[in-house]
Design a binder for these strands. Sequence first.
RNA 1: GUGGCCAUGGUAUAAUGGUUAUUACUUCGGUUUGUGGUACCGACAAUACGGGUUCAAUUCCCGUUGGCCACCCCA
Length: 517
Amino acid sequence: MASRKKIVLKKKTPLKKKSVSKTPAKKVKVTPKAKKKETKKMAPKATSVKKKTVVKKESPKKNIPKNVPQVVRTEEYRHEGHEQHKKKEKKPQQFQPLRGMRDLHPKDAKFWRSVYRAAEQMAEAYNFQYMEVPVLEDANLFTRSIGKGTDVVDKEMYVFDDKDGSQIGLRPEFTAGFARAYITHGMQSDPQPIKVWTCGSLFRHDRPQAGRYREFRQFDCETIGTRDAAVDAELITVAYNYLKDLGLETTVRINSIGSPADRANYVIELTAYLRSKRSYLSELSKKRIAKNPLRVLDSKEPQDREVIEEAPQIIDWLSEDSKKFFMRVLEYLDHLEIPYILDSTLVRGLDYYTDTVFELFRTDTEEGSQSALGGGGRYDLLVEQLGGPATPASGFAIGLDRVVLALKDLRNNPKALRHAPKKSPVYFAQLGDQARQHALRLIENLRKEDIITYHNLGKSSLKSQLEQAHKLEVTHTLILGQKEVQDGTIIIRDMESGIQEIIDQGKIVREVMKLLK
RNA sequence: GUGGCCAUGGUAUAAUGGUUAUUACUUCGGUUUGUGGUACCGACAAUACGGGUUCAAUUCCCGUUGGCCACCCCA
């Protein structure tokens, strides 16, 4: 059997290759390469044949067919060399993903599925409603809400000319889209607040690094229509507990940047202070004094840090209302026992934030760079700024790519996969054409009862199917062969004990249900 | 966007200016017909792409692409 198969193959391959190639090889190099492959193939075969025949049985039948093709091949190897050469030249262009774009590989599926499931569970537990907004919007929506001068808009946004010449942009974040949607659907007339959540891809033309991609995914929650410290506290709770549920310990860094007026006053003060210490600052920070003095605050230069520590703090410049509001948020967090750090240097990169701003950092690593897993804040002015009614709002987003990265890093963490889908404990093996046809129908019957079986209709030998069943760690395998089809029965094999039971096909569902329990 | 490091089968790796580019895992097939875990045998499969130097490049040089790291920024 085996030898027959091999002969067929050998006859086929040269033929196929011949038909493809007409031009002779140009490179001298290729021929030896092909030759090498041929010899490689042949040499071990010859030895193995010898071995087998000597050690095992002396069946001349097997020897002959295996040896014959050898001869055939040696005659043909030159052609094959040409073929290979040609093949290489003709190879169509291969594509890679664009920079910063990636495939989420099936081997990571369990992480992604559990991350998504956890998001859904968490959001719905807090009464957020699922909603989607477009990936593509008028570019001005983003520039107006996020703000010119921010890195996100100036450097990182994907902007294209649409066919009619208008400028459209790939969403770099969710909030602007939700604010727009709130207005377009007149949601101010719905019971307030509107609580929505979503998961999806965002795009930022940044320089990629681990945990930072040009297409990345976020879990996002927004509460639009209420100004209340409890709302901010709830959002932080959801974000914090979401990560905690997945097994990721985080610390919340929180700050309040007050109203634009508060900030303006503060900036004046801060600028004055920084100017007075100008000579101590780094070059970059010096430049920033004029451009965006708030940014100086999160400089990492040690020389800057000293100056920053003495700098006036924004909290002292908040209006009474903002101060009170912020205190209330902190009280809630204390009450909820959410660990937070007051960080007076936390200034988020988007213009629309008012009052509360926060970010969540991993506590269990020292990784400085991509340790921010999520962030958010209040944006009371955004909806109005986009032409809607004056509407306070607050929200957060969590970077799922980073969450998955952290989860993989953790491993052995049972919490991480708590949300992973259950695996089916049953494999369906079939043998023979007739059985295969029949198997499809039985699998369909099981599926109707929400029983999903593993199966591989491409495999024909029972051996390989059982092997696969073993690898999949199923507890039981259903075996359907010719005999069983005729008898209307099926075998259930217990994979651990190896005990098999023959049952009526009509009873499959009931039996498998039992196993599922 | 700035700077640095890197690029060998699907994965992880070895080696080299010169005949057959190493090894392991994975995948597929086989070790007599319809029974997995072990063992053995075999097959598939790579020097990212494009130029240059050279008698000869996977190796040296340049460019492109991509990855990673730091900055920037953030998720």
